[in-house]
């Protein structure tokens, strides 16, 4: 097979741009300064009541916002309820209530990671909202994963075959670490898209993803969360002092 690796990561390309700044034309520099001077002599800006030029506009906009909010809340409640029903019916059962066993839980843990990767790729390919309810129970991680899907810098065309490959599995008493390399078989070649570190926990007899860290130069995990640590990341999404700044950063986008 013709292997085609990522010769330049997105970060490396960005670095090339920053290191090779383009000189601006003199006429632009002058025009920019002139415009700044114009702004500096403009009198204070007009202030409008509550940001609107008229009360009628304010009432119309507020009505639209209220209607949207009501529709959104009803929709969210329905979606959440559907997800919970699905979750109750399916899922990845563990052998015991609280512990994880390499003999009995191996297959379920691997399936959980593979299926979650496939759902991620499906959402990216279809440009759709990902449904991770079967794989993730933590609301904070769910929110973050939605951001990850929406901002995944790669797209998959119809001919591309997404391929998750388990490269390492390590069982502990209370969790499992599963490393999954993902790649895409294209025509021609194959491109790697980094390692996914999954930390799997047992929650009342069902396996769930406690953390899903994408280890890649272009990953928001490396950018926003620092390096992966098996011990610290197991409870990452339960501690506001850890996930707080990450959720704030993505909510601004």
């Amino acid at each position: 097979m013709n292997l085609k690796m990522k010769e330049y990561s997105d970060k490396e390309i960005s670095k090339l741009f920053r290191e090779n700044e383009i000189l601006l034309p003199d006429s632009y520099e002058r025009r920019f300064e002139d415009t700044l001077n114009k702004i500096s002599v403009i009198k204070s800006r007009k202030k409008y009541f509550c940001f609107f030029k008229s009360r009628v506009a304010a009432v119309i906009v507020l009505c639209i916002i209220s209607a949207s909010l009501i529709t959104g809340v009803v929709g969210a409640v329905k979606t959440n309820s559907n997800k919970k029903t699905e979750q109750a019916e399916k899922g990845y059962p563990a052998n015991e209530k609280n512990s994880i066993n390499i003999v009995y839980d191996y297959d379920a843990a691997i399936s959980l990671c593979n299926d979650a990767c496939q759902e991620f790729a499906r959402a990216v390919k279809d440009n759709d909202e990902a449904d991770f309810a079967l794989y993730i129970d933590n609301e904070n991680l769910l929110k973050y994963m939605q951001y990850r899907v929406e901002n995944y810098p790669y797209s998959y065309n119809d001919a591309a075959i997404f391929k998750p490959m388990v490269t390492e599995v390590r069982f502990n008493d209370d969790h499992v670490l599963v490393n999954v390399q993902t790649g895409v078989i294209e025509n021609p070649g194959f491109s790697m898209q980094g390692i996914n570190h999954f930390l799997i926990k047992n929650l009342n007899g069902r396996l769930y993803i406690a953390d899903w860290y994408w280890d890649d130069m272009d990953s928001p995990d490396t950018e926003l969360r620092g390096e992966f640590s098996e011990e610290d990341n197991l409870t990452y999404w339960e501690k506001p002092e850890k996930y707080g700044s990450v959720l704030k950063a993505i909510s601004d986008i």
Binding site: Y28, R31, F32, T35, L36, I39, R45
Partner: peptide
């Protein structure tokens, strides 16, 4: 150049 100048004024 025109677009940038216009943008600066609109933004302000």
């Amino acid at each position: 150049e025109d677009v940038v100048a216009e943008t600066m004024l609109t933004a302000y």
